[in-house]
Amino acid sequence: MSNVQKIVPFEGSKLSKKEQIASMFDDIAHRYDFLNHFMSLGIDVIWRKKALSYLKSLQPKKMLDIATGTGDFAVMAEKRLQPDSIMGIDISEGMLAIGREKIKKRGLEHKITLQQGDSETISFPDAAFDAITVAFGVRNFENLEKGLSEMRRVLRPGGKLVILEFSNPTVFPIKQLYNSYFRYIVPLFGKWIAKSQAAYSYLPESVKAFPQGEAMRTILTNTGFQAVTCKTLTFGICSIYCATR
């Protein structure tokens, strides 16, 4: 078991990591989008656009957005890449309910479908999608390798996987500022705005434990992906991993 799999939102809970993650996101769903943009000062929108730019040349027709949450990334992908369809899956029904409202408001029900689903047992046939995206979700997997293997299975040969995930900056003084912000300020915002300090205390711990850079590239390669690349953004606060089946 890797370190990231041991990090859970609620220490002492008898629930599995997967069940804890679902419960945590159900609890904070109503404030999730606001907190995301607020705590990243809106930079997360730039990161998402950059991640999607890696799929531009592929022109995917069928896309899968894993850990879709409230569907933010799926909505952006529809606008920027114009695929025929996007399927979004997530284990939190609370997040999906908000996402469905968002999609309905934008009149995108014919293009984007959100359904409850587990990234480690994806309920779609082999080679069903041209592209798969995951934004800030892989570090929450109970079994990272199993989730990545499932993604590879449902991706068509030549299809692309794009993962956007937080990482730990290594440059002074960004590293020190980032660590202080994540460790002390973020949990306070979580407690104040989302009424959940546990969720936002879990965030820095899960980022810290997650395999990054070369370690994550190795895991993707060992899972069978090819042409694996890693691009860091904003002084290393965020990373984009790209891989081809």
Rank of each mutant, 00 (worst) to 15 (best):
P60A: 14
V8N: 08
R48W: 00
S13T: 02
H30R: 05
K111I: 09
Y178H: 09
G88Q: 06
R217I: 13
F25S: 03
A227W: 03
D90H: 00
C238N: 08
I43Q: 00
S57F: 10
G159F: 12
L148E: 14
K160I: 04
T133P: 09
Q116G: 08
A128W: 11
K50Q: 10
Y200K: 06
E109S: 13
Y184T: 09
T229P: 01
R100C: 10
N168K: 15
S167K: 06
Q115W: 05
F182P: 01
T68K: 06
S206P: 01
Q82N: 15
V154D: 09
R153D: 11
G213V: 08
G94S: 06
K61F: 10
R245Y: 06
S57C: 03
K14L: 09
V154S: 10
D26Q: 12
Y178K: 04
T121N: 15
T232M: 04
K231H: 02
K146S: 12
Y241I: 04
K6T: 07
S53F: 05
F225A: 07
R217Y: 01
E19D: 07
S40P: 00
F10C: 07
I174E: 06
K195Y: 11
N140Q: 03
A77T: 04
W192Y: 15
A227S: 07
I103D: 04
H37I: 05
E142R: 11
Y184V: 03
G94I: 11
P125D: 08
E101D: 08
Y32F: 03
G117D: 07
R139K: 03
G12Q: 13
T229K: 12
R48G: 00
Q212M: 11
S92I: 07
S13Q: 06
G42E: 00
T170N: 09
F172W: 15
H110A: 09
D27M: 13
F210T: 03
C230Q: 10
L96C: 03
A199H: 05
V75P: 00
L177V: 14
E214M: 08
E145M: 13
L55V: 06
E101C: 06
G236P: 02
N168M: 15
F172L: 15
F210I: 01
C230E: 12
R31M: 05
K160G: 06
F129Q: 03
N3K: 14
W47D: 00
L148D: 13
T232N: 00
S239A: 14
N168Q: 15
R48M: 03
A194N: 04
M63N: 02
T244F: 08
G224S: 07
R152N: 13
K79Q: 11
N3C: 11
S85T: 06
Y200P: 02
A29Q: 02
A227H: 08
V162N: 02
A29P: 04
F34Y: 01
A243E: 09
S57Q: 10
Q20M: 10
L233S: 00
